[in-house]
């Protein structure tokens, strides 16, 4: 059933966020420490485990696929939600600091990913129809 996939996703997210909150409390900081990242790792492992045993039904995969296809629309809603006016009103100091940090970080990307085999991402064979949003999206040429 589709809901099984969605529920699996929800359970992973809640567990990850819970661990992230606990880590935050343990470290004495008011932030969720990597909750979403932990949830993602958990989901990757659980899916891997279930798929190998053939326990992840196609409808359940569709439930997961739907939400990953909704990802870009949600990101666009998120961008429409940003406090853009405040960012620009923050004055030259904020703009210069933000822009410089991004540009310098960009320069560091090739340095740190050096030594990486430039493996192109494997074409998703089994998920191509499920990971809906991706099929109609091509790279910038």
């Amino acid at each position: 059933m589709v809901i099984f996939g969605v529920a699996l996703l929800a359970i992973c997210m809640l567990t990850g966020l819970f661990i992230g909150e606990v880590l935050g409390v343990l470290m004495g900081i008011e932030a969720n420490v990597g909750g979403v990242g932990l949830a993602m790792l958990m989901l990757v492992l659980v899916i891997d485990h279930l798929k190998k045993r053939g326990k992840l039904s196609l409808p359940a995969q569709e439930g997961l696929g739907f939400w990953s296809a909704m990802y870009i629309p949600i990101v666009i809603a998120m961008s429409a939600n940003q406090n853009v006016a405040a960012a620009l009103d923050g004055g030259p100091l904020a703009v210069v600091a933000g822009v410089t940090a991004v540009v310098i970080s960009w320069l560091f990307v090739p340095l740190l990913s050096k030594g990486a085999h430039q493996i192109p991402i494997e074409e998703e064979k089994e998920n191509s129809m499920l990971a809906g949003g991706e099929s109609n999206v091509s790279n910038i040429k």
Binding site: L9, M13, V36, A39, M40, L41, Q61, V75, E134
Partner: peptide, 10 residues
Amino acid sequence: DFAIVSTAFG
């Protein structure tokens, strides 16, 4: 966050 986690599917 829900959608970000779901991208781990791929």
